[in-house]
Simulated assay, not measured.
Amino acid sequence: MNTLQKNQKFRAALGQGKLLTAMAAHNPLCAKLAEEAGFDAIWGSGFELSASHAVPDANILSMGAHLEMMRAIAAVVSVPLIADIDTGFGNAVNVSYIVPQYEAAGASAVVMEDKTFPKDTSLRSDGRQELVRIEEFQGKVQAAAAARTDKNLLVIARTEALIAGQGQDEAIKRALAYEEAGADAILIHSKQKTPDEVLAFINAWRGKVPLVLVPTAYPQLTEADIAALQKVGIVIYGNHAIRAAVGAMRDVFARIRREGGIAEVDKRLPSVKDIIALQGDAHMREVEANFLR
Rank of each mutant, 00 (worst) to 15 (best):
V77T: 14
A74Y: 02
P80Q: 05
A92P: 00
L67W: 09
I82H: 01
L67Y: 13
N91E: 07
I73E: 00
G64Q: 04
V95T: 15
A75R: 13
I73V: 15
V77N: 06
V76R: 13
V55K: 02
A65K: 03
A92W: 12
T87H: 09
P80E: 02
V79F: 06
S62M: 03
M69Q: 08
D84C: 13
I60D: 00
V93T: 13
A83S: 14
R71Q: 13
L81P: 03
A92C: 12
L67I: 11
S78G: 13
S62Y: 08
G64Y: 04
P80W: 07
D86N: 10
D84N: 08
G90I: 12
G90T: 12
S62H: 07
N59W: 03
E68D: 11
G64S: 10
A58R: 01
V79K: 04
L61S: 09
L67N: 10
L61H: 09
M63P: 03
I73G: 08
I60W: 07
V77I: 10
S78K: 14
A72P: 00
D57V: 15
I60C: 08
I85W: 03
N91P: 09
D57E: 02
N91L: 13
I82N: 00
V76D: 01
V79R: 03
H66Y: 15
